[in-house]
Write a protein that binds this DNA or RNA. Structure first.
Lengths: 333, 333
DNA sequence: GTGAAAGCGCTAACAG
DNA sequence: CTGTTAGCGCTTTCAC
């Protein structure tokens, strides 16, 4: 049975209000009382009850980060960015993983609302079907990351997916590729759509035709990338260039290429979105569109805490630059 | 301003108590009232305030998972195991990342206590210095995973690190390695210590001498594995076998070997703990000690929820088997 | 079966 | 500057 503020007050021979004042440091308290309170707190091992405090103040100091796939190495670094900024402002960060599942996502947004979290950073499972009304109804600020949320008028931090995909495609074309394939993400995600559009723009700019057979949809996961690659390799005329829309699918694609004895970059030049930790050890070294992952998290936390602090301005979209890092995998001499 | 239980009660022309009874379904309520309540709940978009409920019932339905390094691919799958079990029992799971930092760890345990989480699964940053008293004092059940917590008498789920390291070492010896090196984890972690002891036992069983120069401590991170490997390669007589105590360090080790032009397995046979997602695409395929990661999470959640449910028995330690998966990286013909 | 009332632990408002 | 009082939203006696 943990000590309550009344226990501390009794032990320090002051009122509960004084204990509260000492602990929250808003109001000046005489030094002697302050010392007595601190002593009592230590002696009793008192920890304020966050539930009671949150109930009373109608605000907690916990931020929720709801991400779409915890196995994607993209997120850890983003979370670090969030944490570093949040903790410097006295907030704690808890994570939840939706697994790209709208039902789980809804459940976690409900948890965030029920626990009255101060704010939420969300990587939406779907740009169209994700429903954030449970947060807005409770006045809980939200920042979208990675994927846009067109329906809701909320802050967001993204990269310029269109330009990045276009640049990657043009790079492949400049390497002499004539049949550049794309493994696209789910049409439900803005990321998937923008990267597809950028790819098409890159083909046009390079004077290459757009062959629907060269575009495969997959689910942003390893298995999807693997299957899509097998499908692409089974086409009449194999592609000579491949752009993969995220890192997990790239993993699957590389595995499929390897199993099929396709040489990278000899037979097919290869570019993917998002680095992963193994990139430096992989041979050939990979050409990747590298996102400023940590910075995405940091900026998202910054936007969010501004809202938590009462900022009521119009929704802000922050677009950070992604960088095409050229390795051996796309280099056809 | 979200709707409260009183709003719902007023709208349904019943008392708040009745609304509560309907929502929690413990007590029978007349069908007509029940329908009115449900209608009001939907119409007002009512969500019970978890803080108020938790304050009143002295229990929440949130489990905390506090892990030591979110960038380690070991954890996501474990978390899945926790989530799957927890959600089937009506609990939500939130994560926190300590980054192997005792200060962050303490802060998150305090958050868990302040938020009165129902229970905590912890991968301790240090077997000796991690302090879980803030949880025990509040009666919050705890399950340790991956690393033991010798000071505290708590439940835990682990693998048999000693046996696994020994088996891996004997495997290397059986491949003809005479100078088997180990990149060990921090001595602060039980995992690091047990794997070291198992390695030594493996050497003894294989009739090989134990050369302290062949053992390097590192920090379970990529950079540490990289540096340790460079150090090992700089010794007078290079090792011909290498066992690495976790996946992230293995990544660094592989990078160092590659940069130094050391052939795997030709010059050095290689085994590491924990698979990672890229393992299938890596050539040579890796020999790894594979942990039942998902199962570790599932069992941890199971133990934890038993405690949450009031189980007061003695501390249980679950030891799951790890499996040596032999690939090309350790095969010297 | 249902309502009224009390109280979980805390802080904000109000006196003093 | 400090104490008293009230109440955040919910569940749980206790009456009826």
């Amino acid at each position: 049975m943990p000590a309550t503020i009344r226990d501390v007050a009794a032990a320090a021979r002051v009122s509960p209000a004084t204990v509260s004042r000492v602990l929250n440091g808003k109001v000046e308290v005489a030094e002697e009382l302050r010392d007595r309170v601190h002593a009592a707190v230590t002696r009793l091992g008192y920890r304020p009850n966050g539930l009671a405090r949150g109930l009373r103040t109608r605000a907690t100091t916990v931020l929720g980060v709801v991400i779409s796939d915890i196995t994607n190495p993209f997120f850890p670094l983003m979370v670090r960015g969030v944490e570093d900024f949040a903790q410097s402002s006295g907030y704690s960060v808890v994570l939840a993983n939706t697994d790209e599942d709208l039902v789980k996502e809804r459940r976690y947004l409900e948890v965030a609302a029920a626990e009255r979290m101060a704010g939420v950073i969300l990587s939406p499972a779907s740009s169209r079907r994700t429903d954030v009304s449970v947060l807005t109804r409770h006045g809980i600020p939200l920042v979208a990351v990675d994927r846009e949320l067109p329906g809701a008028d909320v802050d967001g931090v993204f990269i310029n997916n269109h330009a990045a995909a276009r640049e990657a495609t043009e790079h492949l074309a400049a390497q002499g590729c004539r049949r550049i394939a794309l493994i696209a993400g789910p049409s439900a995600t803005s990321t998937g759509e923008r990267r597809l559009a950028g790819y098409r723009a890159g083909l046009r700019a390079s004077g290459l035709p757009s062959d629907p057979e060269l575009v495969r949809r997959a689910d942003f996961r390893v298995g999807g990338g693997y299957q899509a690659t097998l499908d692409l390799l089974a086409t009449r005329e194999r592609p000579d260039g491949l752009l993969v829309s995220n890192n997990l699918m790239a993993l699957g694609a590389l595995q499929a290429l390897q199993e099929q004895g396709v040489d990278v970059p000899g037979d097919i030049a290869f570019v993917s979105f998002d680095g992963i930790s193994w990139a430096p050890t992989f041979r050939p070294t990979l050409t990747v569109v590298e996102q400023p992952t940590y910075e995405i998290g940091r900026r998202a936390a910054e936007l969010l805490l501004a809202r938590v602090g009462g900022d009521r301005g119009p929704a802000r979209k922050v677009v950070l630059p992604a960088e095409l890092k050229i390795g051996q995998s796309s280099s056809r001499r």
